[in-house]
Nucleic acid binder design. Sequence first.
RNA 1: ACCCUUGUAGCUCAGUGGAUAGAGCACCAGUUUCCUAAACUGUUGGUCGGCAGUUCGAGUCUGCCCAAGGGUACCA
Length: 551
Amino acid sequence: MRAFFLPYIEAALQKAGIETDKEIQIEKPTDKKFGDFSTNIAFLLAKEAKRNPRELASQLIGLLSFPEGTVTKTEVAGPGFINFHLDQVFVMRSASAVLRQGEAFGCTESGKGQKAIVEYVSANPTGPLTIGRGRGGVLGDCIANLLETQGYEVTREYYFNDAGRQMQILAESVRFRYLEKCGREIEFPTTHYQGDYISDIAETLFIEHGDELAATDELTLFKETAEGIIFSSIRKTLERLSITHDKFFNEHTLYQSREGEPSRNQQVIDALEAKGFIGRYDGATWFMTTKLGQEKDKVLIKSSGDPSYRLPDIAYHVTKFERGFDLMVNVFGADHIDEYPDVLEALKILGYDASKVKIAINQFVTTTVGGQTVKMSTRKGNADLLDDLIDDVGADATRLFFIMRGKDSHLNFDVELAKKQSKDNPVFYLQYAHARICSLVRMAEKEVGFDETAATGEGLPLLSSEPEIDLASALLDFPDLIQASLRLLEPQKMVEYLHTVAERYHKFYQECPILKADESIRAARMELSLAVRQVLRNGFRILGISAPESM
RNA sequence: ACCCUUGUAGCUCAGUGGAUAGAGCACCAGUUUCCUAAACUGUUGGUCGGCAGUUCGAGUCUGCCCAAGGGUACCA
């Protein structure tokens, strides 16, 4: 709907001879008496032109003209707002677009022909997924869904490392537990993975091999068995939440030379060196960020000869550019926040357009038990597991639990409270509206021979009561909300919006009889209901929650 | 010590420099001979962490202070 106003406002500005680079903001006023939409453009221009905002607004209104039957009233209000009142018939007529476009309502082709990659979850296979990881996983999945509505060809990627020190410790942990199974007295180190799943993996090995592995120090089998079992558990958990990935990218491939060519890590070093940003001292290789005004250089290759995490991170991003992605979204927890400036700087030096990389940081999930905050750690084995949460509240409520809050909120999680409140999860409020409509449609088919396929939306302009207009007007906001969610990488906006739609539907349902109304009104209200169902479905698909036919 | 994020109702959280700061939960009082009561209606509840500043206008921007979480490694 915002898109509807822009050309007319621009035309009015042109007539007034005003040129500006200010963005024309179209807002929904807080109070309906201020109209359906408003703009504060007069304030912005008044500041530039040193004119009175109210007077400038009046001038613009004189120059504004909309097509017949769209905007009924345009007025100056307060210190200089321009408020627009929409024609009710226009609103209802516009709402028929929902039925015409169906699943495509809200979609655009602005990303058509462009490739996007969204990287999320990216947990190393050292243990089952924690609740904290779930947050990033759901966030990333929703962002990928949003991009798909805009026509992007989206790749969902999981980046992991199965060769680092963490994996070494994991393998050792399994081996210690295995030796215990073999009857050895072992003092299990506190530095190693404490979780019960380690014993389970050791048990698997013991059943398969007996104690024949006890004699060797060779860790490969321990590592590979652990990795296999853990990865399959991770995938299973993600699957339960409908989180999928197209590609699992192994960090280790960046270390390997390919067909006579140097490794990707080495290529990054060479390229940075050619630009004069490589220094070698103290036995290590450094990214000379001091040349960029930073206090210290950053290590790329440690004096041990192993790359630090920064080098493969840069090399990994280079592969994204080489793979031809036009938009790259990385979803990370807050612990990675300071790492990205360096990667972006390196990419810029190497000649890549770093503005194509977008970062979505989600704040941590902290856990409260009995009012006390507990630090969660996979290593300590005291983390709340994502699987347990799904067991307790279900997949839909779990997904919504994460995205009903902004990604910047420091989510404080109380398992007991979450279980107790699962019935109050807003997901059911949204789904109930959908189920109610489905039930209504079933009833209408049975009682009055309603034919869904014949509903075109032509009858909608017959409707004129306040709940009906409010509802239709909310439906028209859906495309704007997709844009806003995507721009901010914040699916929470969509949740809030769908809540408004559901709320207005419930209100409409309460106040407007449908099946009992006269035939033409009944048909129109059925059409409005179908349009709501469509918007809810389209929204649910973005959020990755199911649309139940009955509850 | 420095950097990032956050601080809004009893609780969990929305709030794009705009108009009288909102929602859900909880609490209290109502609504069904009638399409799903997982709903709807109403009431209660606020020094927007604190102080100063910027301007027509600040919960929103700036500075300082306080508090919480995270980060400042040749860990990832």
